[in-house]
Design a binder for these strands. Sequence first.
DNA 1: TTTT
DNA 2: TTTT
Lengths: 145, 145, 145, 145
Amino acid sequence: MLNKVILIGRLTRDPELRYTQSGVALATFTLAVDRPFTSNSGEREADFIRVVTWRKLAEVCANNLGKGRLVAVEGRIQVRSYQDQEGQNKIMTEVVGENVRFLDWPKDGQQNQQNQQNQQQGPGEQKSNDEPDWGQQVPPDDVPF
Amino acid sequence: MLNKVILIGRLTRDPELRYTQSGVALATFTLAVDRPFTSNSGEREADFIRVVTWRKLAEVCANNLGKGRLVAVEGRIQVRSYQDQEGQNKIMTEVVGENVRFLDWPKDGQQNQQNQQNQQQGPGEQKSNDEPDWGQQVPPDDVPF
Amino acid sequence: MLNKVILIGRLTRDPELRYTQSGVALATFTLAVDRPFTSNSGEREADFIRVVTWRKLAEVCANNLGKGRLVAVEGRIQVRSYQDQEGQNKIMTEVVGENVRFLDWPKDGQQNQQNQQNQQQGPGEQKSNDEPDWGQQVPPDDVPF
Amino acid sequence: MLNKVILIGRLTRDPELRYTQSGVALATFTLAVDRPFTSNSGEREADFIRVVTWRKLAEVCANNLGKGRLVAVEGRIQVRSYQDQEGQNKIMTEVVGENVRFLDWPKDGQQNQQNQQNQQQGPGEQKSNDEPDWGQQVPPDDVPF
DNA sequence: TTTT
DNA sequence: TTTT
């Protein structure tokens, strides 16, 4: 009945922009969210959380964000089952971002590079890694973007 | 840097109470969180989200909650990698519950049944499904329960 | 840049339904939100937090909620300055509810009473207590209801 | 039963560090939280929200934050009644910050200035503006700092 | 795998 | 697989 997530973290890589078969844009990226107290070990610990945004927001993210950028994401947890490339049933948990705030600014030169790279990716292309087939995904209709 | 989740939903089953090898209690359960607008299809849609609680809160959950109960959970998203029983690397995403509010009351008789069942489960027992080995898990030290 | 509130509590009274001069509906009510640990004193402690909802959501609240009902409210904090009836500048802080979930069901008879009372209040009426003049208020245009 | 606030915004002034009569530290500051869409007017709109932190966190805030700094605050809404200097009953609404994240870095020179100013303020001092008498306040005992 |  |  209520499903609310707020994350602040840094992108581990540039976002990936894709399109469903019906032409709806979606962007995916992973946030590294540092945990508060990592007192016992000396190491830095973080959760790596997948985020997906849709439509206009997807394009804004793809064209303006890049690796290392600090953002706040408001959204909800989504659990999806899908079949991987060997036909195995798998479960994917991710955050559907409904609102993304940019909390820092790109370093010099980073921005343009960003734009180019993402604009080269056309509708229908699909990376061949172990992911749900986004082309088949049906976008949420309750996200007002 | 910030990782905050708030869920309201119903337990799909009774919680399971376990113990790590060092004797720390943990309870796991799944919440069915209904999505707001399921307008297009006639079906009821929900996300099924795993929750884990630790220590005293785990015992309170195991002893007081059961299938169908309505709760609010405040916590954070945790992403863990583990090896399943065939030695495959897998990823498990779940919500670490730091605060659980009971929003309704048990139906008649449900309560006691609940208690008994959970008290029969002793430390060290492990269900043989495809889950991380909780006995090996190290409990979070930043959860004040 | 981010302003997010989630409350779970009970209505202290029936909601009040009003209209701005331009005819937009708004409902106001106060939530009693019990504090978690009131260990030191024996008394029950709560925060009493004003909530305002707009448009369709205002009508849904006014027609379905009543004193004592348990709800979850998602929204944002709004701080407004206004002049009271003696012309003094005052500040009002309240939560603008963007999403309201009903967490229990009305007791017998409570529901209809509710409906009648709220439907008797027509547009333009104003209670003469120490409140901002809602007739003058401009509704938020970023709330999608 | 649940009272959760997450804010991201900038301090409008340096924090003020005070002490209750029993010697407990508290810091107060105001956050300017920009609203998302200010489309209709050309002006920049924000909510100005008071935050109070206690104990160790109060000192960390006072010693490290200053005007203009960007922070994320997690906390809860608190509504208090108090008497102003003319003996009038008033209500103060503010956010009790339980967790504060610094999202940017101080500009050159800003930091030290900050430190000095706050260290000059001793226990028991009280600004004579229209505020609740913090010396009389009893600190929350459910905040683990 | 799933709750009301 | 990972960010500063």
